[in-house]
Simulated scan of single mutants.
Amino acid sequence: MHTTGHIEALTREGSALLTAAEEAGWDAEVPSCPAWRIRDLVLHTGCVHRWAADYVAEGHAEARPIGSASMPDGEVAGWFRSGYRTLVERLEAADDTLACWSFLEGSPSPRAFWARRQAHETAVHRVDAELAAGRTPGPVAPEFATDGIDELLTGFHTRPFSPVRSDTPRTLLVSTTDAPSAHWTLHLSSAAPRVERRETGAYDCRMRGPAAHLYLALWNRLPLDGVASVDGDTSVAALWQEASAIRQRTKRHAPTG
């Protein structure tokens, strides 16, 4: 996907997240983020949007902490809306010469990185809000879902502190079944996973399904059972589900860094 597409997705997902959050109510529990209520989810995501917007606008060269926020419930929606719109405006105004800190390898530019990361951050939390509202998660376009799977597998889980490890070497194949079809082969060991964007042959376990379903299952927002087929050694799939959840302050959610 191009940066423009990510910015458009961020705009849609921010609006959809807020709609679902207001439907659920600020005190609603978020089943996919234990110990969080909708208020926590929206405040967290809004702080992440402001954190990202500051990198884009001010060009900070080093990592900075994500802030926190607290306010009366009646102010949360307007505060959140202002934050994601500011992020969108700053991404639209920036160009590909932007220089600032980012944290995943392989992005063509920091602007492209922040647009992609915030689009997927917001999309996953939009699903959290919909689950809190008792809804079936809304659709995720196959191209966007495939892009998000790629970011998760080749970006987050190839970093040295990925928690997905196996004392015995294992190979996990992840394949989408819709257009565009895509494959990722994960080589699991006592080190961080090594990932190839192709089907390499023999595997111990394969997860296979529509991109949108895999996207949410790999982010632990939907159970694998029922949304994807799992062939081979199912203990490898179980290892992924148990180890891949990225936690911050003991809360399970889509990562920000």
Rank of each mutant, 00 (worst) to 15 (best):
E130R: 05
V174H: 01
A141L: 08
P142I: 03
E89G: 10
S102D: 13
T3A: 05
P169A: 00
P163Y: 05
C33W: 03
R116P: 07
P255W: 09
S82R: 14
E13D: 14
V195M: 00
F113I: 05
E29P: 08
T136D: 06
D96Y: 08
D231E: 15
A112G: 02
G59P: 13
P137Y: 08
A191I: 11
T154A: 12
R37M: 10
L10P: 07
T45M: 02
I66Y: 04
R197H: 08
R81L: 10
R64I: 13
C33Y: 07
H2D: 15
P210Y: 05
H183T: 12
G209A: 04
D96H: 05
L216P: 05
D54F: 08
S189T: 14
V236E: 00
S181T: 15
S175K: 11
S166F: 09
E62M: 08
V48D: 01
H183M: 06
L172Y: 04
F156A: 12
D150M: 02
W79M: 10
L224Q: 04
D73H: 07
P193K: 00
G67A: 01
V88E: 08
R85Q: 14
A228F: 00
G83M: 02
G59K: 09
E13N: 12
S190D: 11
E143R: 13
L214I: 08
P180A: 01
A141F: 06
S162Q: 03
